[in-house]
Structure formats: C-alpha cells, structure tokens
Amino acid sequence: MNRHRAHFLLFLLSLIVACLLQLMPLPDLLLPFRPYWLGLILLYWALEEPERVGLGRAFLLGLVGDVLQGDLLGDQALRLAALAFIVLRFRSRLRFFPMWQQSLAVFALLLNDRVLSLMERAFTGAPMPPASFWYAPVAGMLAWPWVFLLLDDLRARLRVHEA
C-alpha cells in the first residue's frame, strides 16, 4: 500500500513538474526548443506503467494543460489521447528498443503530435506556423534519454528503499 502510494506520488509529482516546465518562461531564443514536456512524461509512464495511463487520464492531463496554457480547450487533450493510444498500442515493441531507437521513436511520436497540432490550427484558420514550430520534436528527442534515465532511476530507488 505504502509502496503504491509512493509510486503514485512520484507519478503525480512528475506530471506537476512537467506542467511547470511547460509553463516556465524562457528567453525568446530558446522558446522554440522547449520540448513538449507533458508529452514526454506521459510517454514514459505509458511505456513503463501502462496501468497508470489510460486514454482517459491522458485526455484529462491534456485538459489540465489546455487550461494552464490557454490556447484552445481540447487541443492538448486530443493530442495526448492520440499519443497515449499509439504508445499503448506499440508498447511491447517500444519497450525493448535500444535507447537510440527509442529516441527516434519518440521523435516520430512528437512529430506526429506536431502534425496533429498543425491540423487543428488549419481548422481554426490560423496561419502556417514558422519553421521554428518543428524544432520542438528534435529537442524532445534529445531530452528523452535523460527523462527516461532520471525517472527510471527514481523508480528504482523507491523500489530499493522499500525492499
């Protein structure tokens, strides 16, 4: 029970940190390189502990992100639901990729996420985003190993601590 609770706390904490990172002000130069933290964290949990992340939770998390970011309600909810769906579908394969392949897969997923976002923008009549719109998935790919290692390490520590 205690163990579950600690893990749940870690899960919650990681999501909160992701929200904060998503909102953190950055210099204009770095702004396009901000990885999609919410997506990355959700990806990790969907890969490692799929029983925590369903489509519903992904959708809810997206709603929270929408409220925080204030773009368009339902935008991130839809994207995260789609992301979670793909990851959960191919989870068994993705999990056993070596790190570099996993990173590439993450890149593809984030790129897909961007494409979805672009489609939404097109429907709302927003103009074509600049080239910097596409930097974020690259940054996300580069950030993925560190996110993965950090969270894996934290989880391992929790497990050891309890054992």
Partner: peptide
C-alpha cells in the same frame, strides 16, 4: 483499454471541445 473505439470516442470529445 487501447481499443480503437475508445480512441475514436476521445478524439471526438476533443474535437467537440475544440
């Protein structure tokens, strides 16, 4: 949990919200 039907439902919900 990962059935396509669910996904469709959630996507539809997202689109409706948007």
């Amino acid at each position: 949990a990962t059935s396509t039907l669910r996904l469709v439902v959630y996507l539809a919900a997202g689109v409706a919200l948007m």
